[in-house]
Design a binder for these strands. Structure first.
Lengths: 251, 251
DNA sequence: CGTACGTTTGATCTTTCTCAATAATGGTGG
DNA sequence: CCACCATTATTGAGAAAGATCAAACGTACG
């Protein structure tokens, strides 16, 4: 329910270290950043299209998603974020946000003043590079999503998204990758995969019927990780993990 | 046919200045970067998935595209690049490339050693920020493409892509946005929009039949920019242009 | 002037969407 | 604790966008 972490930004550090090495010194500097902790409801906006960013929210608890809509209101979810992820790296250096970020669940965020984070990025090379690399990895994930939506069928898309989510949770020590909480409605899953909710429902049902997916309320389980991975055509390369961990489940 | 620019990197400077201001001093520093000019054939790889980047190619002449494929060979084009764009900002700070970049046409690239560019990025704040911002704008374009492919129909997708291309060319002074060279096959257009070549062909035909698109060999013309823009649900916000230019055609 | 590549067209098939109705589920006030 | 309401999930039937298959037609270039 609550993280066992002692400092709200510990998970951010963990996240940055997935992609770039940090020393004790950098840990201390990051922990010294000014921030304000805030509870947020499900659906609350962390960033709104057109906003001039003033602060950078880091997820401490709960999940968030990035979203934008077409002129006639169709919504596309662009990414899903888990605790430890800084939701504003994509906007912080731009004059105004080009998309929205909303909470998927109730949660807690730590808000860091934008300027403090910019100053730190510019003054400390190690941290600056870690933030830059993390941002570039996000861009890599955007590209994989484009491939996913553009060139995979519904079944593959959904399997791929689930695999990515599972692996990212495990990388953040938020649970084993074969069983996790997926606090997302089928409508949101549809918006993330470029499908309709009805079709998402049918695909999920058929994955269950095949025995490669189990669902119980919001809990998802993969009885056979390898098979799920194959269905989703999932490979970790695009996540750019520095040292591939020794997941039982990841070959 | 050839650019009237005197220095191969002039167009890169123009590109960076679209998103961040640079002074005379920075111009000079950028022009002093070491680089090697090279002719490249259509289809030549500039980056290959798995590569450890050693240099950063800047397009001087010709077009390029970014691409990755699914396990069973379906290809998705992730972005298209025009002269002045640095094709490797997305990879330069990562250990290995997660996608491919290929020439769309025959062309000329200026290759800058990776380390020189990294050193410059880290040592000069103004240029570092310009490169960072330009990279973030690329990420914004990836997001818009995800929306395009995930939530727009074939006709809208194609119109949107054409509008984006037109505007980016005009921003780089490479031609008026209502008439330009589109050196891309219908198969590539399909790979960029998540469609099949056959369907792309039919949509193009129908846009022509409606009179909103004219094609003559590789030249494309929009008789009514505003109508094309509406069809593609196109807005410039996601391109993050610093000062919106006074295009005749852009309201 | 033939070969390879790209475009165009027709016919048919499939995936996914749409519309509509019903069933669960979760949270809320009494 | 229970009844009620709003969301969310599920299912069916039919429609449509886009895919697939196959063939013919152009065109650029060696």
């Amino acid at each position: 329910m609550t993280t066992p972490q002692s400092h709200p930004l510990d998970l951010l550090i963990k996240k940055l270290e997935t992609h770039a090495p940090l020393g004790k010194e950098e840990h201390a500097i990051l922990c010294d950043l000014p921030f304000k902790v805030r509870d947020v409801d499900a659906g609350a906006h962390l960033v709104r299209e057109g906003d001039k960013p003033e602060r950078c929210a880091v997820l401490v608890e709960g999940y968030a998603y990035r979203q934008k809509t077409t002129g006639d209101g169709a919504r596309q979810i662009l990414s899903i974020h888990i605790p430890g992820e800084a939701v504003d790296f994509q906007n912080m250096f731009l004059a105004e946000a080009d998309h929205n970020v909303q909470m998927l669940t109730r949660g807690v965020v730590a808000e860091i003043p934008r300027q403090a984070l910019i100053d730190l990025t510019m003054s400390n090379r190690v941290i600056g590079e870690a933030i830059l690399v993390t941002t570039l990895v996000e861009a890599s994930i955007f590209r994989e999503w484009t491939l996913n939506i553009g060139r995979r069928n519904a079944r593959e898309r959904i399997a791929h998204l689930l695999c990515e989510f599972a692996v990212r949770l495990e990388l953040q020590d938020l649970g084993p990758n074969v069983e996790f909480e997926l606090p997302i409605t089928q409508e949101q899953l549809a918006d993330a995969t470029g499908l309709t909710p009805v079709h998402v429902n049918r695909v999920l049902k058929s994955l269950q019927a095949e025995g490669v997916l189990e669902r119980n309320r919001r809990t998802v389980r993969f009885p056979e990780w390898q098979r799920m991975r194959d269905i989703g055509d999932f490979s970790m390369r695009y996540l750019h993990v520095r040292e591939t961990p020794t997941f039982a489940a990841i070959s």
